[in-house]
């Protein structure tokens, strides 16, 4: 995220074509007043807005992301807004890992008739982000650290594992997994917590090793994470063939990134 002067937050709002975009249009036609910090990006369905877009927006230095869809049960595509809800659940966890206050991401519903509601939600969200402050206002060192973690979160959001588990949430909660085990929301949340944290850590390790070989201890120190956790992640990456031993320094094995052609 680039450093920015000033206190006016820059916000992006994803609106679905059928309900909330029409609601925004109605707010405009009715000349309702709301803060001008928001920029609308139209998508056909809120279910199109993936975690990757959201973290990417923060990396670009935006201070908040608002996703608006049809009310539950009113989705033009039947279930797209429920998928949006699943994706936002994962994205919030990504933001937690990065250290960005997850109140900067809001998912809400606006129907085509609710111009007033659109204006209210946008006003409330803008004020909320204003109290949280702009992201770029932090100290440059902090900004660099957040950016490093954001890049890891982006890689995680593009990765197969996280995408797969996000996509399977509905099935796990209704029909169950391959063995017919149905998961409660609580269990799914815990699973997401673990997987998001693991994925973001793994991506951070890979990013560090990209620069130069390092030991588990060094990696743990620079990521400010407990060494046993890093070791577990490192061994998993080694099993996947993404890192390899480069040698031993003192009594510590040194790891380096292995560049492999995917598949």
């Amino acid at each position: 995220m680039p450093e920015r002067e000033g206190s006016e937050p820059s916000l992006v709002c994803f609106c679905c074509h059928w309900c909330s975009y029409s609601g925004a249009d109605l707010a405009g036609v009715s000349r309702m007043q709301y803060p001008a910090n928001i920029r609308i990006v139209r998508v056909m369905c809120s279910g199109r807005v993936e975690p990757y877009f959201v973290v990417q927006a923060f990396l670009h230095g935006l201070d908040g992301v608002l996703i608006l869809g049809c009310h539950p049960g009113d989705c033009h595509y039947l279930t797209g807004n429920y998928e949006a809800r699943n994706m936002v659940a994962a994205t919030r966890r990504l933001l937690d890992c990065v250290g960005i206050d997850n109140r900067r991401l809001v998912l809400d519903w606006v129907s085509a008739a609710e111009g007033t509601r659109f204006a209210e939600i946008v006003t409330k969200f803008t004020n909320e982000v204003k109290t949280l402050g702009t992201l770029g206002a932090a100290k440059p060192t902090d900004v660099a650290a957040v950016n490093f973690r954001l890049k890891a979160a982006i890689a995680a959001a593009q990765g197969e594992k996280l995408r797969w588990v996000v996509a399977k949430q509905t099935e796990f909660a209704t029909k169950g997994n391959r063995y017919g085990e149905v998961f409660s929301r609580h269990e799914l949340d815990r699973m997401l917590d673990g997987i998001v944290a693991d994925e973001v850590m793994a991506q951070q390790i890979l990013a560090l090793l990209n620069e130069e070989p390092a030991s588990v201890k060094e990696v743990a120190a620079s990521l400010k994470l407990p060494p046993p956790q890093v070791l577990r992640s490192m061994l998993a990456l080694r099993r996947k063939g993404l890192v390899t031993l480069s040698g031993v320094q003192g009594s510590s094995p040194m790891y380096k990134r292995r560049n492999v052609e995917r598949f």
């Binding site: 056909m44 993936e50 994706m87 995408r163």
Partner: peptide
């Protein structure tokens, strides 16, 4: 296909593209 893009936003391989979105 009605173009909602739910497949595209979930594809683990990011192998699904959307016309215009």
């Amino acid at each position: 296909c009605k173009g909602c893009g739910v497949c595209s936003s979930h594809c683990p391989r990011r192998a699904i593209g959307m016309h215009s979105f």
